[in-house]
């Protein structure tokens, strides 16, 4: 055991990010010329369209430009629309399957990259796991299209399995990062202590490692879920006929008549995303 200076395992060291950065006196980015204008422009550019989208989801009329009064009509309509229902269920099912499988894989990968001695090729494995973050999505999409198309022709099988596989693949790094971050802050002496107290490897994992890494796992699961729910490009390329998810359904709608129904669906997805991401931050920043 290499000795480390004090911090007991029970107190988590505050992440370096929260340490206020000291700028030299008299210097501040806030005083740079154009800073305020730039900031306002960025915020307006980012949030104004979203605000408009949310606002018009409550429009009583069917225009995206003329306000005709408040109504929940488009929410009712979207909820009653069988195509929307179908796509929503598929999206949730897909996100659930892909996020779950990806989280299990990511958990194992995180354990293998933090709970083992240094081995040759460890850096390689990091980059392999994170590969979907580096490769442009469109490249992956085309590659998957080619391979899956061949398999579909060869087997005649066209179930959701292709979408689940594709989503699982790009969800892994998103699940992996928070889990690994969590494991890295965990004191390995705790696992040594469990073994010293007669726990087998499995019980050490079950009673000590798993409960302690659990917030990381839940965070990873939620992040993967949101990422899957949100995906258009890969889904569009991989799906078989009739396998619309919410994002691809909306994309299809936009090519035809656009009504505030799309706004209503977007607003619901937005809310779901905001809630999940907020929970994610709560889980990852909570101190133990």
């Amino acid at each position: 055991m290499v000795e480390t200076a004090r911090p007991t395992p029970t107190e988590t060291v505050a992440p370096a990010m929260t340490v206020p950065r000291r700028e030299p006196r008299g210097y501040s980015v806030r005083t740079l010329p154009g800073f305020a204008a730039m900031a306002i422009f960025t915020f307006v550019g980012l949030y104004a369209p979203i605000l408009i989208l949310v606002t018009y989801s409550f429009n009583a009329g069917s225009s995206l430009a003329i306000w005709e009064g408040f109504s929940l009509r488009w929410y009712y309509q979207a909820a009653a629309n069988e195509a929307v229902q179908d796509a929503a269920i598929r999206s949730l099912y897909l996100a659930f399957c892909a996020a779950s499988i990806a989280t299990v894989a990511a958990t194992m990968a995180a354990l293998a990259t933090t709970r083992t001695r240094r081995f040759p090729g460890k850096t390689m494995i990091y980059s392999l796991i994170n590969q979907p973050l580096m490769i442009p999505e469109i490249v992956t999409a085309v590659a998957l299209l080619i391979v899956f198309a061949a398999i579909k022709v060869w087997t005649g099988h066209t179930s959701m399995i292709y979408l689940i596989a594709a989503h699982t693949a790009f969800c892994v790094p998103f699940a992996y990062l928070p889990i690994r971050a969590r494991l890295e802050t965990m004191d390995t002496t705790l696992e040594t202590a469990a073994q010293d107290l007669y726990a087998s490897r499995w019980l050490t994992f079950r009673r000590v490692t798993l409960p302690l890494m659990w917030p990381g796992i839940v965070a990873g699961l939620m992040l993967a879920f949101v990422i899957s729910l949100d995906d258009v490009v890969i889904t569009e390329f991989v799906k078989s006929a009739g396998q619309e998810t919410i994002p691809t359904y909306m994309l299809g709608q936009l090519r035809r008549v656009v009504t505030p129904e799309v706004n209503a669906i977007s607003t619901v997805i937005l809310m779901a995303g905001v809630i999940l991401v907020a929970l994610f931050f709560r889980l990852t920043s909570r101190r133990r």
């Binding site: 395992p9 705790l190 202590a193 073994q195 010293d196 107290l197 007669y198 726990a199 409960p211």
Partner: peptide, 20 residues
């Protein structure tokens, strides 16, 4: 013998109490 089969226990320098 692995540690979990030795009738020997350790008090760790940083205590290593299970925080959960």
């Amino acid at each position: 013998l692995p540690p979990n089969q030795r009738p020997i226990n350790t008090v760790f320098q940083n205590y290593a109490l299970f925080p959960h």
